[in-house]
Amino acid sequence: MEEELGRCVASWCFGATGVVGAAKLSGGASQDTWTFDIVHPDGNIGAILRRAPPGYGASPARAAGLDAEATLMQLAHDAGLPSPRVMHVLQPRDELGAGFIMQRIEGETIARKILRDAQFAKARPMLARQLGKVVAGIHALPASQLPELRQMTSTKEIADLEREYRSFDWPRPVFELALRWLRDHDPGPPQEVTLVHGDFRHGNLIIGPDGVRAVLDWELAHTGDPMEDLGWICVNSWRFGEIDKPVGGFGSREELFAGYAQAGRRADPDRVMFWEVMGTLRWGVMCCGMMQRFRIGPDHSMERAMIGRRSSETEIDLLRLLASRER
């Protein structure tokens, strides 16, 4: 791998003499992520490769595609948002598959560490506001410069979720109740359709002691209702036990909305609530999907099996949202 990367890097990084320390960070069958250092006389440069290996061209139906991801990441970077700089988009002659190489940004993505470790104690109280500003910046990226993306609406999203849930053929009254609620409360098209990150939450945010350093993973980017991103980051599943701090377990909705307003955009709390319910149900349906893949798919892992048993977490959260027992 280092040899292939070294050849690739030499073709666009002037002065680079090779690549060291290549290690796979994560990887499934169709996509993987590598970290490595570019050896350079001015000092090593930390880099990340995100790619579909040769032979894996097609991306799943909801995915934006790696070319679109690279374009969005670069657009965000150029707009001054916390985003890695894209250093190179892979070409066929690189023989590394499809994807891109970006600047490596140091920091933490693991929620439990961000929420508990002392080194993030100063960052935590400001994160919700910061992320409000950042996501407002994402929503302000000019439509004319965006790559081709799928356009989503709340109505389409409900139908997609329902189709997926029904495909499992396993009756879940709480999910039915949530689907019913979503259909009854569908807010319709937003005033303004914008770019939506689509997976704006822990795991896709690099956090340092100074706050948010980068937004990653544009795989689920699309255009649609900007309030979707604000609702998704409030889903209880991403609070990791800190359930009284709706934004990622570190902040309040008010702080998130204030940051959003500071960047010149107004949050719509009712729509955000709608998308929070949708997001909670979506994660629940995804957990059921993991169970299916465990049973019928190639990934017969214990971890995947156990994620199937987490869908009930979203059921209690849906009941807390829709049928609260508090007086």
Binding site: R239, E242, I243, R309, R310, S312, E313, I316, L319, A323
Partner: peptide, 18 residues
């Protein structure tokens, strides 16, 4: 639904904060 869900959580994830 509440009773059923509480019974599920007691098996699946009794440490879940909610």
């Amino acid at each position: 639904l509440w009773q059923t869900t509480m019974d599920k959580l007691a098996v699946d994830q009794p440490n879940y904060a909610s």
